[in-house]
Write a protein that binds this DNA or RNA. Structure first.
Length: 308
DNA sequence: TACACGTGGCA
DNA sequence: TTGCCAAGTGT
């Protein structure tokens, strides 16, 4: 047990040194290697950060970049987005995928306009209450936009900690209490450093400590990484569930919604029928889109992106 | 807890 | 080519 205030049994490295020794190398590495992204830096608004976090859920940075820029130009504030129909958010979402995120971002903007005077809230609890904001996004916005001290546990951070601290190749499929303890134990004491640490660890996971072929030769903490010290053992446990896609309802939903996005106004049943030749699955997918609020029935056989 | 939910690039 | 993977959330 160390005498350092932020230390705990969970915060010890494989060689017995306190895990706080990771802070310096990782922060220094970030200073030299951080990407310049529009939602980073002192001029980025909390709204810009929040939009980026929604878009980055399960979607790579390179694909988010152009859509984020167009989005912020068109809707520089939550109120601007809330003033337009949700269908416009879905249309502007383009091909980022998981379009329910667009609907939730619109709903979040509406809630911010109505309940928070048009300003993105800064408290973790208020953020968490917004549609589409879960544990990760609430912590990310509070940390990145407002400089608060929160454990920000995304897939990158979880992988870095799994390797450097726990000594395994991959983290568990779902976030565990043990992972939260590790993240909390490693959080620097003061808020500004904690916020920089959060983004730095995430960046390290995104650029160096990657899933398939980690760049250990470029890693600032490779000499104290528990996984490396253990000989970089292979993944131990059940195979990680892959995402099936071809032939699924998801694929059909995507094709249907693409037609709606590219249409000026309404689309006919015939236009939708053309994208998938299996009637039952096509109908089920369309029903699902309507149930989710992504598509609005206008009249029998006529559909459009939602106006309300 | 496990599954549904888009899309595209890379090995 | 096929499967893995990408700053998760809601149910």
């Amino acid at each position: 047990m160390s005498a350092t205030a932020s230390s705990s049994p969970a915060a010890a490295l494989a060689d017995g040194r306190p895990a706080t020794e990771l802070h310096g190398p990782v922060l220094d590495w970030y200073d030299d290697n951080a990407r310049e992204l529009p939602w980073r830096g002192p001029d980025a608004s909390p709204w810009s950060v929040m939009v980026s976090e929604f878009m980055l859920q399960q979607t790579p940075v390179v694909r988010v970049l152009p859509v984020h820029q167009a989005w912020l130009t068109r809707w520089p504030t939550p109120g601007a987005l809330a003033a337009e129909p949700p269908g416009e958010a879905v249309r502007a979402w383009g091909r980022l995928g998981y379009p329910r995120r667009a609907l939730r971002l619109h709903a979040a903007a509406t809630a911010i306009a109505e309940r928070h005077d048009g300003r993105v809230p800064s408290s973790h609890a208020a953020l968490l209450a917004l549609p589409g904001v879960g544990e990760y996004t609430a912590a990310a916005v509070a940390s990145f936009a407002y400089g608060q001290r929160h454990a920000v546990l995304d897939t990158n951070v979880r992988r870095v900690f799994a390797r450097a601290v726990t000594g395994v190749r991959y983290p568990p499929s779902a976030t565990t209490a043990a992972e939260r303890r590790v993240a909390q134990a490693l959080l620097p004491d003061d808020a500004p450093t904690a916020a920089r640490w959060a983004v730095a660890v995430m960046e390290l996971g995104a650029l160096v400590c990657t899933a398939r072929t980690p760049g250990c030769g470029r890693c600032p903490i490779t000499d104290r990484c528990a996984w490396r010290l253990a000989g970089s053992p292979a993944h131990d446990g059940p195979p990680r569930r892959g995402q099936t896609y071809a032939g699924t309802d998801r694929q059909v939903r995507g094709k249907l919604l693409a037609v709606l996005r590219e249409a000026e106004g309404t689309v006919s049943q015939a236009e939708l029928d053309a994208v998938w030749n299996e009637p039952a699955q096509r109908a089920r997918a369309l029903d699902g889109l309507v149930a989710d609020g992504l598509v609005e029935p206008v009249s029998p056989g006529v559909y459009r992106l939602p106006l309300t």
